[in-house]
Each structure stands twice: as C-alpha cells, then as structure tokens.
C-alpha cells in the first residue's frame, strides 16, 4: 500500500507543478500591486507541493505488511462498470438517452453482475421506462432523441 501512496504523492506533486506553472506563466500573481487571478492558485500549488512531498516522505521504505491495493480480480468489476458507463456516454447522443439507459442497465447486469438475459433485459426496459416517465415527461428534461427513440 505504501507504494501506491507514493504514486499518489507523485501525482499530486505533478498537479501542484502544473498549478504553479499556470499561476505564474498564464495567470497574474499580482495585478496593479494587488492579488491577481493567479495569487491564490499559486499559494495553493505551493502548499500542495509541500503536502505531496510529505506524503511521499512518510511512505518511504518497505511495506509494513502485505496489503494489496486490489484483492485478486477485485479491479475487474469497477473497470467493467467504467467501460460500460464510458460507452454509454459515447452513444448517448447517437442512440438517444432512453435507449442508452436500457443498454447501460442491461449491459451492466449481464457483464458486471452476471445476471440472466431475461432478468437483465427486463430490468433495463423497466429502468428506461421509469427514466422516460420521471425525467422526460414529468421533469421535461430535453434529452437527445437519437436514432432509436
């Protein structure tokens, strides 16, 4: 786990570097002698850099005990969920909001939760219907209609 904390520290240090760079080169630290738009981000960047270094420093050395970041295959379900959701966003405009909801729920139950085809499809259709009634009809959300709906 310590190594992952160090990676997090390095990532935060990179973010801090980017914030400082933008504050100094792109934004103004001072504007007519007064704090400019880069003033506070610069300060925050410096503090974040210090904290990131502290995070790395406090996690140096060997692992205390073997605590894996992920249990075996534990990453698979979250990763599948992310991929399915990303696919949903990609097709959202093209196939329409309600259809993409049906596809998302059906795909999720089939691939992530390993449910049967009938159960997955029925749940997907029911969810699509509820979203249509609540958001489209009742709340009048202007959803993209797309090709199928």
């Amino acid at each position: 786990m310590k190594s992952w904390q160090r990676y997090a520290g390095v990532f935060l240090l990179a973010v801090a570097g980017l914030v400082i760079q933008q504050s100094v080169w792109v934004l103004r630290l001072l504007d007519h002698g007064q704090p400019g738009s880069g003033f506070m981000p610069f300060g925050l960047g410096v503090i974040l850099a210090v904290l990131a270094i502290c995070l790395i420093a406090t996690n140096l050395g060997p692992e205390d005990r073997q605590v894996p970041f992920w249990e075996p295959k534990a990453w698979l379900h979250p990763l599948l969920a992310i991929v399915i959701t990303a696919a949903y966003v990609v097709v959202f405009d093209d196939i329409g909001a309600i259809t993409s909801v049906v596809v998302l729920v059906t795909g999720w139950l089939l691939l992530v939760e390993h449910k049967g085809v009938v159960v997955s499809a029925a749940t997907g259709l029911a969810t699509g219907l509820v979203v249509y009634l609540v958001f489209d009809r009742f709340l009048q959300t202007p959803f993209p209609r797309g090709l199928l709906f």
């Binding site: 969920a81 959701t85 949903y88 966003v89 959202f92 405009d93 909001a97 909801v101 998302l104 729920v105 999720w108 139950l109 992530v112 939760e113 449910k115 749940t123 969810t127 979203v131 958001f135 709340l139 959300t141 202007p142 959803f143």
Partner: peptide, 23 residues
C-alpha cells in the same frame, strides 16, 4: 446491491445531464 448499483448509476448519469443538458 447488484440491482441497486446500476440503478443508482443511471440516476447519477441522467441527473447530472439534466442540470445543464451537457454531455
């Protein structure tokens, strides 16, 4: 929870879109 998770995800996705209608 296997049924709750995708339903909550749908609620977040549809909900966040409905704020500004922006993908």
């Amino acid at each position: 929870y296997s049924f709750l998770a995708p339903l909550i995800m749908v609620l977040t996705l549809v909900g966040v879109y409905s704020v500004n209608n922006n993908v």
